[in-house]
Structures are given as C-alpha cells and as structure tokens.
Design a protein around this nucleic acid. Structure first.
Lengths: 124, 124
DNA sequence: TCGCGTTATATCTGCTTGAATACAACCAGG
DNA sequence: CCTGGTTGTATTCAAGCAGATATAACGCGA
C-alpha cells in the first residue's frame, strides 16, 4: 500500500572476483530468450550491443557449457538463443532469488526500517 | 574431495540500488569494533584509510542513525567505535547472511556444479 | 607548550569501465 | 550475385573509481 518502496532483495553469485550470475545478467538472458537476438535484447534493455555481448561472453566462459548459442548470417542476419543448459541455469537462479526473497522477507522489512528514506538527499 | 576448489562461490544480497550493507562493509564494521579505529581497521584489512573512511561515511549516510562514531584528538589521537545502532545493524545483517546461507545451501551446491572450475584461465 | 596518532578533507594520477563508432565475417533469401 | 541484419572484433574517447599523497583540525599526555 501507499508508497512502500518494496524492492525485493536480489542475489548475486560471485565466482572469484567475477560475477558469474546476477540480476542484470539474468534479465539479459530473459531478453535474449524473448527476442532471439543479442542486439535486440540490448536495445530493449537500453544497453550497448558491445556491453551485452561482453556479458554473454563472460557468462559462457564462467560456466561449464555456454548459456547462449549464437549464429551469424542466414535468415534475419543471424540470432542467439538460450541453450538448454542456459535455460536451466537461469531457472535455477530465479528459483534461488525467489527462495531468498521468501526466507528473508521479514528480516528485510525490519532491516529496511533502519535505512534512511533514500530520497531527499542533501546534495550528493 | 581431494583438491576441493579453493574459494567457494559467494552470495551477495542486494538491498536497494546502492549497497547499504554488504560483506565488505560488514567486515569493516567488525574490524572497527575490534580495533577501535578506522585507520587500524583499514590497515588490518589491507585497504587505504581513504577507502575505509568513505565506506564508513556512506554507511552513516545510508542509515537513519550513524553506525560508527568517531572522535579526533585525545588519548591515542582519537578513535572510532560502533554505535549501539551500528551494532544492531551489523547483527541483523549477519543473521540475514546466515539464514540466506542455510536456505540456499542445497540450491547453491547444485548451481555451483554448473560453474567452471575458475582456475586454469587461459589469459584473461 | 609541544608532540603524537587519528580523523577528516583536498588534490592529483593511473586504471578501469563504458559508450560510440567502424568494420569484417557470415549466410539465407530474393 | 547481392542485400540485409546480426555476430564478433578493434579502436578511440570520456567519465568514474581507487590509490597515493599531503595537510589541517583535534585533544590528551608528557
């Protein structure tokens, strides 16, 4: 109700120093699955194609098998789609996010009360 | 068993857009509580005083009350310690970490199996 | 009164990050 | 054969970040 900020906690899976999977990458995978293209997904998410490609490349390198398969040329110029392995990784990640959200909901609400209202910042 | 991979994948819980609290900040609060000084804590953690101070400043600004109280001059030149509010925030965060770890342990183990072994990287 | 160790702040610089741009490689379809 | 839209790569440039350095403010103790 009202203007409750509500933002659910999100997860980030850190491999070493690198981020193997996180909110941004998961959303990108969703967009690729939906659009069938890295470039379309990038445009839809408002990021540069280069950035999207780098993220895909990093994910494919972080996992034992590629999460995204891409092809150039052909009908429509080419395209990209999730591999079965990629779909499973995404599904597992979303499930973890959901379970974390459920498990921490109450504590998060309490913790949030200790935070400042976040808007109304003096200058920076 | 045997050569169990050195650093296991870690999890980070994101609160809002800005990271009000995370593993690094929590460890810093621990170090401040232990050493009684921002500079000693920074040295112990191998980070610059500037970085430690910025983190403390960000935390004090993110919460409704400061987590760290500091004083200059006086015995030993000054010092810093956790406020009661800060101790509570840290305690709550650690509890959330623990509960998340318990709730996601099995899923995390399964997810980790999908990750590459992280060492043996070609070049970069 | 002076020194000491710390907090707090300012400045500079190298490094990393990201956007922008350009372009080659590719291949189904007309 | 040629076009179209995409993947993949290289290059350049601006902005932000992190480290190093320097210094002022401070107050207790010698």
């Amino acid at each position: 109700m009202g203007t409750q900020s509500a933002s659910k906690p999100r997860l980030r899976v850190l491999l070493g120093a690198a981020i193997a999977m996180g909110p941004g990458k998961a959303d990108l995978l969703d967009a690729i699955a939906k659009t069938g293209s890295i470039s379309k997904a990038a445009r839809e998410m408002g990021m540069s194609y280069r950035r999207a490609w780098l993220l895909v490349d990093a994910m494919n390198a972080s996992f034992k098998e590629p999460l995204v398969g891409a092809a150039r040329g052909g009908k429509g110029g080419g395209g990209a789609r999730l591999t079965a392995f990629g779909a499973e990784a995404l599904s597992r990640y979303r499930a973890m996010e959901e379970h974390a959200s459920q498990a921490l909901a109450e504590e998060m609400a309490e913790f949030t009360k200790m935070l400042r209202d976040q808007d109304a910042r003096p200058d920076a």
